[in-house]
Nucleic acid binder design. Structure first.
Lengths: 239, 239
DNA sequence: CGCGCAATTGAGTCGACTCAACGTTGGTGG
DNA sequence: CCACCAACGTTGAGTCGACTCAATTGCGCG
């Protein structure tokens, strides 16, 4: 059931059978969520961390004026809120953006892992570090790229991450976010988000219809995005 | 010498004398950097992680057009690139923004820590997680706040972080960044950065002259910034 | 068939950018 | 000690990107 997590972690280093067993035992329950449902509420102190088995989820914060900023997108195999194990209090919410299948890792079990399985601990730590890298890539895209380039960068990143967990189909992938939700990722208005998407379409870089994105010209898309996947640490080496 | 690190970590949980000793032994060398010097070069694979003893440093990425985005600011007691221990390849550079005193932790020693000191390992992991939280706060500020609010948020955050390591003086603190460097933090042009700073001055929220920022009205500044320090995890509790 | 939600288009306004010039200041060498 | 230089800070003007308000189209489902 948690094979996507294995696929994810093994992008960075190999896991032993014992470690795989430990990860399986860590999962205390599972649950399904409908699109729009909150997995975790801001300000709460969950006793477990959520692993996405299938579906799309997002971390987000709301501002006083009621606008929303999505700070991360999570897919199959991602530990959405592993950081809650040590941060304790959630500083943001987590929402399902499609129907989701989620498993939960108990924080007591995680603590036992840190006491008995140093390599596995480093692998989980690494998982949170990679998501930190992704945050930094997003900051650069938000601050110093055109909006079209920013969108292209996110599409490149999602494609690569989804391919790692076998969720792509050739150059296409399922992508359930509406343009309004995507606007909350880029920090744009809905209207302008639409216009930016049309720019990428007009240049023949992507098609995006009925919840499916297809990359039509990977090389050009990568160029527009200045996409360099180094930050995803996709090389298996001793960690 | 590494007391700022202790001050920093003890915001989150207590350290034993043994743990303090382990941290001291981890530091294999120290060095001073002039303002403008690179501590770490993008793409390198450093065998140690940098701890700022004193001074201001920044992580940054350059774009193809030659613009720069600063993704994080680091002060006394911050492990700038602890993540390099597991990420291996640096996906960004680190630069000194003032004269800096830096110590280096050997990655071999860090690995030994993960094998023998689970609680200390969790504390170091937590340190990287807090910086992940800060990244998310920055993403929200970049995406959904006015530029004046974004600047106010950064000033609030810096004030709180600097106070933790005793680097504030009443409502004032040393802040060596030029307006041009600050523009690379907010993702603005130099000219507009200047105008945003003047907005906060005109409203009587801050003064900023000769490398010193003074907060003139904390309550109003916090309001403008919508600053909620939860994301900094400043409560000592078992981790 | 019609409702509701998502996507799209148009028009007018304001924020942020660039180019360009000028003021200020701290440090350095004659 | 003062003059000068270089870097930083400030201001003005014109342009373009992104926003808001508003209306229209497209589509899936009861």
């Amino acid at each position: 059931m948690i094979e996507p997590l294995f696929l994810n972690l093994e992008q960075h280093d190999t896991l032993s059978d014992e470690e795989r067993g430990v990860l399986r035992k860590m999962m205390v329950k599972e649950k399904r969520f409908a699109a729009g449902e909150d997995l975790v509420v801001e300000g709460s102190r969950p006793p477990y961390s959520s692993l996405v088995i299938d579906g799309f989820t997002a971390r987000y914060k709301l501002t006083a004026e009621g606008t929303r900023q999505i700070t991360a997108l999570h897919i199959s195999g991602d530990f959405v809120d592993l950081h809650a194990f040590l941060l304790k209090t959630m500083d943001h919410g987590v929402i399902a953006l499609s129907p989701c299948h989620v498993a939960f890792a108990d924080h007591g079990e995680l603590k036992r892992v840190t006491e008995q399985y140093p390599h596995l601990t480093r692998m989980l730590w690494l998982d949170t570090l990679v998501h930190g890298s992704i945050h930094r890539a997003w900051i650069v895209a938000m601050g110093r790229r055109s909006k079209a380039s920013h969108l292209a960068h996110i599409i490149c990143e999602l494609f690569v991450r989804l391919r790692c967990v076998h969720k792509t189909n050739g150059w296409s992938f399922y992508f359930p976010l509406s343009q309004g939700e995507m606007a909350d990722v880029l920090g744009l208005s809905l209207v302008h988000m639409n216009r930016v998407i049309q720019t990428l379409r007009r240049h023949g870089l992507i098609s995006w219809a009925s919840q499916t994105i297809t990359i039509l010209d990977w090389e050009k898309l990568k160029d527009v995005a200045e996409f360099d996947p180094t930050y995803l640490s996709l090389s298996a080496e001793p960690r």
